[in-house]
Simulated scan of single mutants.
Amino acid sequence: MGILTGYAGTYESAQSFGIYRFTIDGETGALTEPKLYYPAPNAKYVSLQKGKIAAPVERHKRAGICLVDLSAKDPAAEVFCEEQTACYVIQDGPRIYTANYHEGTVMVYEAQDKPGKEQDKSGKGLRLLKRIRIAPAAGCHQVILHGQYLLVPCLELDKIRIFDGSRNYEPAGEISFPAGSGPRHGIFNRDHTRFYLVTERSNELYTFRVDENAGFYQLDSRSVLPEKGTREDDTAALRISPDERFLYVSTRGSDLLSVFSLEDELPEAVQFVSCGGRHPRDFAIVPGGKFLLVANRFSNNLICFRLGGRTGRIKEICDAVTLDEAVSIVFDPESRKAEESYEGK
């Protein structure tokens, strides 16, 4: 795989200031020390699509998003339409969606090529298309794309709210979970026939069958912990392996990574292992499938684990680097190895 370029989002602190860039050797798992790429306070979640990174940003008590062109031919665009920084960002063509945990909203932005009412001075920017108001403090934690629909896990409501993008994001149903479970993050398999979701407070993995009419049918729920956990365990994120044979889950309170086999009808736990630090947030499977990279927020590091090929198991630590308040990770599919900072271009 050669040298791959990765980007990480961070919470703002005295030592972390925005979006960081690093590289990883796709054959050995060796990491370079992350360097600040774009200063964006509280850029905790990053999305990368077609050479552009979208992330939350907070400046002068204003919150919004930034859109950074990796080619650096143009300055970054920023727009401020939110009272507090979003906890999740995802791109879908020119549309950019954010989930705002505290405000209980989903924002729909659009990238622009021409000057508009709400954009920066560069001549390219962003505009707000739609503010989807769900409920104050609903705990909106993610936006999941499913054809024409948006699925929004609302942790504090114990529901996934569904919206129809073909009908101006009108409500299109909901999926309910047990009281106090706290649905947090979900993921589809490649053909969207299975949907998996983890709950933050009950620390469970839910499995749904999905039909062609966007119907969801629960098949299973089981703990992501070796022993039944409590609310303090705080399950965070999940990922599916490129061959769709395994599913990985991070749990912060237990500093744990869990591995499930997907080779049968229902997920089966095959491994529970330490995250190599404290408070694992997001993590990513490195392109090529040989390594898993974990962002441990409280121990301020990125940890690279080797993966066990056909076994799917997490094996030894290959490398570790320091990054304060690390939250999320993405990789550039074009694998550029650029070392200079955004500000220096």
Results as ranks from 00 to 15, higher is better:
D282C: 13
F260P: 04
T32G: 01
Y169I: 07
N203K: 00
A269Q: 14
R133Q: 12
R194W: 01
K130A: 00
F331V: 13
A77G: 15
K35R: 10
P115N: 10
A76R: 07
S13E: 03
S274P: 14
A86R: 08
T23E: 05
K44H: 05
F177P: 11
L238H: 08
S221E: 08
K117S: 12
R184M: 10
F80Q: 05
H192F: 05
L36P: 00
L157C: 02
Q119P: 02
T5V: 00
A138H: 02
S341L: 01
V294L: 08
E263F: 03
Y169L: 07
T251Y: 02
I314W: 04
K315F: 00
A76S: 15
E268M: 03
G147W: 04
D243L: 00
A137K: 14
Q271H: 13
R239H: 14
H279N: 13
N100S: 13
E118A: 05
L31Q: 11
G9A: 10
H141M: 04
C154T: 15
C318P: 01
N189C: 11
R184D: 11
D113G: 09
E12Y: 10
Y7M: 11
I3D: 03
T28I: 03
N168H: 07
A14L: 07
K61F: 07
L292I: 10
T322Q: 09
N189F: 12
S261G: 14
R222Y: 07
K228S: 13
L197W: 02
A76C: 08
E263P: 00
H102N: 11
N296R: 07
V57P: 05
K44D: 14
G64H: 04
